[in-house]
């Protein structure tokens, strides 16, 4: 269920790129697209993203599984906009009491929904193809992130899959001692909250012990660290970042040339 393992085919040409390069490419690509509210630029971007997907070794089915909540968000955007749009220009398509749906509203909704997808997908793709250890290594070696913090966070990430098992253990321990909620929904909620609290306490306790174990093996002893796993930032990685910027800029330019561009600010 909860897993931070990458889901991509490991040998895929773009999945193999430096994690920092992938992250930078995704962030830059997203930020350029954020600048507009029109449907054209994000539509082009989504087409590009889907076309590049096989190069990341991610299957469309996997992407759909990770991104399905976006569909629900899209529905939310649509409903909200129908009820609360700032401007209702264009032809009136439907009028029922306070609800006025115009072609302008639908166009804005389309823009927002497409933007949500276009901006989120690069991140979904990158994180689906990146291993946490590699990301931490690359952040330290290629992005000059402080090693103590990157490694500390990485060590804590290892606890993620354990939290699920821990939840089960806590529930069983309580049941064995005669604690349960029965059918009462309030009691259920209280039990849920207190289980979550015990889980948090347990996680912090584990963190405290982990810190001692790390100190025992010379973490933070002041000696300069060496690295066992080299992460390189190559020309290909630089090209990936440049390519992401170029593609996003091209999508934006297309929307400006077509006259659909609507700036986010102003």
């Amino acid at each position: 269920m909860i897993s931070i393992e990458p889901v991509a085919a490991p040998g895929a040409p773009l999945a193999r790129r430096n994690p920092v390069a992938k992250l930078a490419a995704a962030l830059l690509f997203s930020f350029i697209l954020v600048a507009t509210l029109d449907p054209v630029a994000p539509a082009i971007a989504i087409a590009v993203e889907l076309a590049l997907l096989p190069l990341f070794g991610v299957r469309y089915r996997v992407l759909a599984r990770r991104a399905w909540p976006l569909l629900v968000s899209a529905a939310g955007i649509l409903v909200t906009l129908v009820l609360f749009a700032a401007e209702r220009s264009g032809r009136v398509l439907l009028e029922a009491g306070p609800v006025v749906v115009t072609s302008g509203v639908l166009l804005t909704a389309l823009g927002l929904v497409l933007r949500t997808f276009a901006v989120a997908l690069p991140g979904v793709i990158v994180f689906a193809t990146t291993d946490a250890t590699d990301l931490a290594d690359a952040l330290i070696q290629n992005a000059k992130a402080p090693a103590r913090f990157a490694i500390g966070a990485l060590a804590a990430f290892r606890l993620v899959p354990l939290l699920g098992q821990e939840w089960q253990a806590i529930s069983m321990a309580r049941r064995a001692r005669g604690v349960d909620a029965g059918r009462n929904p309030i009691a259920k909620l209280r039990l849920f909250v207190s289980t979550a609290f015990v889980l948090l306490v347990g996680a912090i306790r584990r963190g405290t012990r982990l810190a001692v174990a790390m100190d025992a093996r010379g973490f933070d002893a002041g000696t300069p660290r060496t690295v066992a796993r080299r992460q390189r930032f190559t020309t290909a990685d630089a090209l990936l970042v440049a390519g992401a910027v170029a593609l996003a800029a091209a999508a934006l330019t297309a929307s400006i040339l077509l006259g659909t561009y609507r700036p986010l600010l102003g």
Binding site: F149, A153, A155, A156, F157, L159, R206, F219
Partner: peptide, 14 residues
């Protein structure tokens, strides 16, 4: 300290 880093990370992870 190490414990600050790890416990902050653990809180964040939870």
């Amino acid at each position: 300290r190490t414990i600050d880093i790890v416990v902050a990370s653990v809180i964040a992870v939870a």
